[in-house]
Amino acid sequence: MTRFYNKQKELSEKWIGPVYPKIRNKLLKNSEFSNMCFVLPAGKGIFQVQSGGKDYIVSILTKSCDCRKWDLTGIPCNHAVACLRHERFPTEEMMPSCYSIETCGKVYGFNIMPCKDQSLWEKTNGPQVQPPIYEKEVGRPPKSRRKQP
């Protein structure tokens, strides 16, 4: 409950911009690394990016890169950020909606209701809940010692 309360306060007071702050920091780190990338446009939203002695193919339309970081996380990798800069697209618009502040507001928008003390719970006439019955497994038990070489 305390975490939800703190996140609600942060959301209303501190968070600004369209993207969640931790994701924005990752995006800023990727934009710093994108300064070392050389972009060669191939046409129709496809680019060849040279970075660290390797070539990567980036497609802005399908939001994919050969390094697969953009494919897996949805956060544009440094190669994608370099391509977006080349085409003068804002990188925050290429982010999925799950990283937006509005989505975080929906996640932390409700309250978790606290429970009463156990002494105030209603007594029911249902069966007593017991732990499952232990059944011994068939076969020889494994050794717990490690042999020295």
Rank of each mutant, 00 (worst) to 15 (best):
F4H: 03
Y5Q: 13
Y5T: 13
Y5E: 14
N6F: 12
K7S: 07
K7P: 02
K7C: 05
Q8M: 04
K9R: 12
K9H: 07
E10Q: 11
L11S: 13
S12F: 04
K14H: 09
K14N: 10
K14W: 03
I16D: 05
G17C: 02
P18Q: 08
Y20N: 11
Y20L: 02
Y20I: 01
R24Q: 09
K26M: 06
K29F: 12
S31L: 11
E32W: 11
F33S: 11
S34W: 01
M36L: 11
C37A: 15
C37K: 07
L40Y: 09
A42V: 06
K44E: 15
G45S: 03
I46R: 07
V49T: 08
V49N: 08
Q50M: 07
G52C: 02
G52Q: 01
G53R: 06
K54C: 03
D55L: 10
I57E: 15
S59L: 03
I60Y: 04
I60H: 05
L61F: 07
T62N: 12
T62H: 08
K63W: 01
S64Q: 15
D66A: 11
R68S: 14
D71A: 13
L72Y: 13
L72C: 14
T73S: 15
G74F: 00
P76T: 00
C77H: 01
N78R: 14
H79I: 06
V81F: 01
L84R: 04
H86I: 04
F89T: 04
T91N: 07
T91K: 09
E92F: 02
E93M: 05
M95V: 00
M95R: 03
P96T: 02
S97E: 15
C98H: 10
Y99A: 01
S100A: 07
I101R: 06
I101L: 15
C104L: 10
K106D: 03
K106L: 01
K106M: 05
K106G: 03
G109S: 02
F110N: 09
F110V: 06
F110C: 10
N111H: 06
M113Q: 14
M113S: 14
P114V: 05
P114D: 01
C115Y: 08
C115E: 11
K116S: 13
K116D: 11
D117A: 04
Q118I: 15
L120I: 00
W121K: 04
E122K: 15
E122V: 14
E122L: 15
T124F: 06
N125F: 13
V129E: 12
V129I: 14
Q130E: 12
P132R: 05
P132I: 02
I133D: 07
Y134P: 06
Y134K: 10
E135M: 08
E135S: 11
K136S: 12
E137L: 11
V138F: 09
V138A: 09
G139L: 01
R140L: 09
K143R: 12
K143V: 06
R146D: 10
Q148Y: 08
P149T: 02
